[in-house]
Structure formats: C-alpha cells, structure tokens
Design a binder for these strands. Structure first.
Lengths: 149, 149
DNA sequence: TCATTTTAGTTGACTTCGCAACTTATTCGG
DNA sequence: CCGAATAAGTTGCGAAGTCAACTAAAATGA
C-alpha cells in the first residue's frame, strides 16, 4: 500500500469501493450472493415488500440493475417477486425462508467489513465521517439531478 | 435523494462511486476518455513513464485492468507504451502531445467533481475526511493482503 | 372520454472490473 | 550455469453497472 501521488477523495472512494467488492464477493460466495446483490438483500431485510422502483431509488442504481439483481436473488431462492394488485406495473420483492436462514451469517459478514474499515477510528470521528459522506452525497445527487435529468 | 434505512460507510461509498462514474463518463466523453481510464491518465500527468505494474499498484486495480485501460488510452492517441530496454517484460507509458492539449480541460473536469462533492464542507473537515478515508484504506489493504494473498 | 404523457419493469449493447490461465522474461538457489 | 520460481503483461470469461429502446399499465387533461 504505497499510495503516493495526488490523493483525492474521489480516488480513495474508488479504491475503497473495489476493495469492498473483493471482500464481499469472496465472503458471500458460500451463500451464493454476489457483491452486486447484497445491498438489495440488506434493504429487504430492513423492509420487505418494497417495489423495484423504491429499491432503485434508495440504492441509487439504474433500474435495469435492480431488475437483474433481484432476478439473481430470485434464482438463488432468497427472494420472490409479486405483482401489486392495485397497480399492475409494480413488482414487490419479498423474502423467502431461505433468506431468513442465512440472515445472521449475512449480517456478520456485511458488518464485518465496516468493522475492518473503521478499526482505530474513534466513534465520534466515524459519525462525523458518515455525516460528511452524506453531505457529499447530497451535493452530488443535487448536481446530477440538475444536470442530467 | 431520500436515503433512509441503514446507512453505512460501505453503502455511501458505493453510491458515491457510481455517481462519480456517471459524472466522469458524461463529462469526459468529448475527450474520448472513459470513466475507467481517467485515473490512469491522471497518474501519468503526475508522472510520465511509469510501468503498467507501477500504475497497477498505485491505482489498486487488477493488472488486467491496467493493460486494457492503457490500451484504450493508446487507441485514443493519448498514450504510447514503450518497452523497457533493461527489462524486456516491462512496458512504460508515456504521454502523447494530444494528452497535453487536453490537460487543462481534463483537470477542470476532474477537480470539478471534488468541488461539487465538498461544497459546504469546511476545509479542515475535508482534510480530516481524507485522513479517515486513508486510515480505512490502510485497514482494508492490510486485511485483504493478509486474507487473500 | 380518449389521446397523450408518465411510470415500472425488461432487454440488448456496451464499459468497467476481477480472477485465472497463459506467455515471456528475469531472478534465484544449488 | 541451469532448472525452478517469480514477475510483467495479455487474454478469455463472467459479474456488475449504465444507457437507450421497448412494453404495458396508469395518470393526466382537454
């Protein structure tokens, strides 16, 4: 880990993102969950029955990505997609029993990464960090929604 | 930008990374530079003549990625790869005049993203943020090199 | 009411990325 | 000095992700 040269926020974020993907794809492999799907599953553990569009907006991905990620989770037996009765355009995602069975393992692995990352960073600074990241995310979101509708 | 639910560092980083890619791929399109290549060009503006392996380690990507990204930059006319005289395994990347011609535009776009992100975040907190991100990166790097050699 | 617009989801084409297998060149131990 | 190990780069493959074009359903408004 030499890391000299022009260190910017953007570059640190890119590297951290790649590292997280490596960790998650390796650790979640036994559960047949890919690094691209874990966030959807996490969101559904938080709240079942969300529509693809709701998930798309929360996770901030393209809707095509949501469709494919949920398709994979469905193939893996963790998720079931059900058409909404009132609005037939909407598909809601529910958890299958298989998902509940791996929930504990899942969270152990996922929160494990945060633990690794924040080792040696005091709680108060962690909170400030999250705060600042959220500010940046708000800024970016505002810019993007203004400049590429 | 609703962003409720379980907000973790990992998730914020993932979203910010996707946003940066959207911004960069759109803004750098006129220069025929992809979001995956910009970091290599930035590194070369910093220091020309680095080998693919040096770039790979600094940028923390797979060497396959470096080979392909530099190949695209070469196709676009920004980079020339030259075999090292002493060690014939090594290829060094140098900038073509075309790169110098777009350098100003390039940096305006790239630093523009940081400006957007850090809007409203005091300088001192920006520095602390970078500091903490670096700590996390060190932690992650240490973990990954120990657990997947 | 009914034509137009908007919304949710799907699919195809493309980029970015990592892993594994391979080639070629260098280094190292005996 | 030579065979084995290591190192740099390339390529095939598959996962993750975006964009654009499409379908079908719902909302809007004249």
């Amino acid at each position: 880990m030499q890391l000299q040269g022009r260190i910017t926020v953007g570059r640190l974020i890119a590297i951290l993102h790649r590292m997280a993907n490596m960790y998650l794809s390796k650790e979640l492999k036994d559960l047949s969950i890919g690094a691209g799907q874990y966030i959807f599953l996490a969101e559904l553990f938080d709240q079942e029955g969300q529509s693809q569009d709701e998930l798309t907006k929360k996770i901030f991905v393209d809707k095509a990505n949501s469709a494919r990620a949920l398709g994979k989770l469905e193939d893996a037996g963790y998720v079931r997609r059900v058409g909404d009765d009132k609005d037939k355009r909407i598909k809601r995602a529910f958890l299958e029993p298989a998902a509940r069975e791996v929930e504990e393992d899942f969270w152990r692995i996922v929160t494990g990464w945060s633990d690794i990352l924040t080792r040696g960073v005091p709680k108060q600074r962690q909170e400030q960090l999250i705060d600042d990241l959220r500010t940046m995310l708000e800024n970016a979101g505002e810019y993007l929604s203004k400049n590429q509708p």
